[in-house]
Write a protein that binds this DNA or RNA. Structure first.
Lengths: 196, 196, 196, 196
DNA sequence: ACGCTCGGGACTGCCCGTTAAT
DNA sequence: ATTAACGGGCAGTCCCGAGCGT
């Protein structure tokens, strides 16, 4: 158990990672710092050695989650055969598994409305991370210009996020599965190369 | 302070209406019962004469908000010239005004993720109201069958909700306006009669 | 449903009777006026048509309970053969049935400590009713003078009350039964005619 | 406001001690946690760092008070000349001073009825402490067997408790003093060595 | 005019996010 | 960098008066 700076860094990352999951699963107000630290195997007092406030952690955890999400989507796209990037993205996002695992899923679908209402700095951090995600995603989407690619990325991501939220809100699992399947077709076709 | 027979009903409706707005603006955990009752011109002591719990109010307020939203959209559609129903719906939902007025705007875009995490009865009430909204909306959408209409309604609503959330999360108002404009075009075209 | 004065009187008595039982069973702070009125088949609003305050009801209900108790004890004594009055009293009070039915049992054993801490008027009302009970009881006890009879009544009642409280506090039912049996013997012998 | 390692223990004990007195003086429902902590020189916020609930504190405070009481009685007995143990116990318990100082007096006389109605764990903790008290007391009482000693201890304690309660309930101080004096004689004689 | 209902404060137990002091 | 403590706040419940309908 080295007490070096490395160790502190590791602890810090563990907290962020734990928070990143817990926040998506339980919401911002559903997670308390004592509960969080306990889940990370620490005492609640030590929190403020790592973060100045809960908001700071929320901002960081959300940014991390957003980066992870977009990297996962980017990885799915880059592993797909040429011309299948869009398809890969849609198929990775709009799945029952993603719907049923909010803790490791899309931060936007889980927390966006709450983050919008958060203090300005949290909101700004979220907006910045969102921009980065759009950047990463736009590389895999068609479009006449960089601008068009970004527009498409935003449109697509927004549509998928809304669909995931809707799928989670539905009571009937079969209907929810069906919505996801239809949405996969819909978005894959709508954003296909020449289409938009 | 009149105490006639129907005044309790009026008071109750005032509480629900106030809550419906406050919840969308501040989130479920952001609104306390004392604050809510104060905003409705009452003290918090009388709250439990109207509702058995905060959750019961949340359920009712969200259902009311959902009904209002879908009626507003339905009204916009029904006032449009024939063949322009879809356009009217999209133009009514995806506007900067709607984005900037969450308190009176779409409940799904403001609260869906939190409602999903709420107790089972709140969740169920929300899911039921959501189904009704889809019903109402589907009457104005094209589709080969009733089923197809409902599918389209869900797809469209999900897409619009996600877009509104995304537009609200963006820092740059111009970019946000642009997203809304692009989305209006996108969804109007995508769901046009023979299109989908 | 006659609205005459008689009816009001009946309602009032029903409230007092209900309260008398509920208070012994749940304690003063364990019984709320809404719960009480519901148990009496009424709405909580009407309470203050009958009593100026909760304390007034408590005072009256306790006095009633005390009277009932002492009458029950007096009846047991008066129905006993001559020379068996004391025995009858002790056997009526120190029973497992009495221990297990606090709601209809001795008010002193159930509420005395709380009543001592109650507002002055409640306390005074309780003290007065207690005096009456002692009066009634003393008629059945031996003693060289009226004074001695009263002394004996107080000593005996105090001892029995404490025993009942102790018996209720014990976990082991067998031990508790045994304590009651021993106490019956003890007090019957101790206060026997020439004894004290 | 030092924070050394053992200060938490000291603070905890201070809270228990304060509670032990306040509970006897005001009753379980008469003492709120904020009031309690204020009386202990603290704020209510820190309470739950020491106890998981109010009930837990009540259980502990009552057990402590019971131990103190029985130790005080045991000390009085052990300091008395041989053959005067019983007399010492009775004289220590049935005094006007004890009657007038419920806050530091017998827990059973002050709280037993309320504790009987308390949650199961509180009740159990109280019953256990009561058993211990009986144990301690029985060492100073006559009896043919250990069992008989315990029986006598229970009978005596029960009688004294009831007498104290009765003495507290009486309005007339002179009469109350008289009852105590009579009871001292009565119990001292009744439990004298060969007597019972 | 009586009696119910609505509403008003106050309070409780519990828990949270946070910081001096060690 | 933990422990102990601080205030502030929440949902829920209480007891109780101001004022209508019967």
């Amino acid at each position: 158990m080295p007490l070096s700076k490395q160790h502190k860094q590791q602890t810090r990352e563990r907290i962020v990672k734990t928070a990143s999951r817990a926040l998506r699963a339980e919401g911002i107000d559903g997670v308390s710092i004592p509960a969080l630290m306990r889940r990370a195997g620490l005492t609640h007092g030590g929190f403020y050695a790592h973060f100045p406030s809960k908001d700071a952690l929320v901002a960081e955890a959300c940014a991390l989650g957003l980066v992870e999400s977009s990297e996962r989507l980017g990885a799915a796209a880059s592993h797909a055969p040429p011309g299948q990037h869009l398809r890969a993205i849609v198929d990775a996002y709009l799945t029952p598994e993603h719907r049923d695992a909010p803790a490791t899923g899309c931060v936007i679908a889980a927390l966006a409305p709450q983050l919008i209402r958060a203090p300005a700095d949290v909101r700004a951090s979220f907006a910045a991370a969102l921009d980065q995600s759009i950047d990463r995603l736009s590389a895999y989407l068609p479009g006449a210009s960089e601008r068009a690619c970004r527009d498409n990325a935003r449109l697509l991501l927004a549509g998928m996020v809304g669909t995931l939220v809707m799928a989670r809100a539905m009571d009937d699992r079969d209907e929810s599965d069906r919505l996801l399947a239809l949405a996969r077709e819909f978005y894959a076709r709508a954003f296909a190369a020449g289409g938009e």
